[in-house]
Amino acid sequence: MEFFVQQLVNGLTLGSVYALIALGYSMVYGILKLLNFAHGEVYMVGAFIGYGVLTMAGGAADPVLPAAVLVPLMFLAAMIGSGLLGVAIERFAYRPLRDAPRIAPLISAVGVSFFLQAAALLLFTARIRNYDTPELIPFSVGVEVGPLRISLVRILVIVTAVVLMVALTLLVSRTRLGKAMRATAYDREAAAMMGIDTDRVIAATFFIGSVLAGAAGVMIGLVFSRVFHFMGFLAGLKGFTAAVVGGIGNIPGAMVGGLLIGLAEAYAAAYLSSRFSELVVFTILIGVMLVRPSGLFGTPALQKV
C-alpha cells in the first residue's frame, strides 16, 4: 500500500510538470489549430534561465539569498523569459504563416526548435548542468506520513503547479482576456469582426503557454536536476502526448492528461518494468485515441460543410 502511495507521489510530481507543458500545447492548438513543436525548447530555455539565476546567486551550495527568496526569483525570471521567447516565436515564425497550409508551420516550428537547441549548445556548451537542489533544499526536509516520505521539493512542485493551473482556469473563465481567448478559439474571424484584436489575443496565449513551460522547466531542474540543450525534445513529446490524451485544445483535459501520463509512467515503471514504461504510455495513448478519437475531454471534431 505504501509502495502504491509512494508511486502516486512520484507520478503526481512528474504529471504536474507534464501538465504544465501540455497546457501550452493545448492552448495554442485551441486558438490556432497549430501544433507548436518548438514548445519543448521554450521549456528548455526556462530551465536554463532558472539555472542562470541560481548560478548568479552563487550556486545551490552557497547562495547569497535564502532559498525562500531565491526559488521564487528563479521561477519568476524563467517564466518571464520563456513568455517573451514564446511571443517572439509566434511573431516571427508563426504569424507570417497564419493563413498558410496547415503543415507549413510544422516545419517552421522544427526550424525554431533546431535553432534554439543549437543556440543553447553554443552558449552553454553541451555539459549537463545540475541544479544541485539537495544542497539548497535537502531531500530529508519534508513530510513523513507513516512510512511515506514526501520531500519538500516535491510538495513545492505539486503546489506550484496546482496554483498555476487554478490561476489559469480563473484567467480563462473570469477575465476579459480569457473571454477574448475563448471567442478567438471558437471562431477567429468572427471574433475579429466583433472587435477583438485577435493578434494580441494570440500573442497573449503564446505568452501564457510559454510562462507555464518556463515554470515547468524550473520544476524539472529542482526535482530532477538535469538541464541540457536537448531536454526539450522528450519533455515536449510527453507534454504533447498529455495534451492529446486529454483532448487537445481543452484546458482541463491537458491537466488531467498530464497527470495521467505521469501516473502511467510511474506505475508502469514500478509494477511492470521501466524497460517498457514508454511503450506502455504510447500504447495507452493509441488505445485511448482509438476508443475516443478526440481524447478524453475533447469535443468530436465537426466538419464544416
Binding site: 509512494q6 512520484n10 530532477f224 509512467e265 510511474a266 506505475y267 514500478a270
Partner: peptide, 30 residues
C-alpha cells in the same frame, strides 16, 4: 531492468529496489 538514456525520473524505479538489494549496478554513460 532498463531505462532509456534520456530518462530523468527514476523515482518509480528506485522504489523497486528491495531492502535486501545490496548493490545497484549501473553500466551507464551519463
Amino acid at each position: 531492468d532498463s531505462v532509456p538514456q534520456d530518462q530523468t525520473d527514476f523515482s518509480a524505479l528506485v522504489s523497486r529496489i528491495s531492502d535486501d538489494t545490496d548493490i545497484v549496478f549501473l553500466p551507464w554513460q551519463l
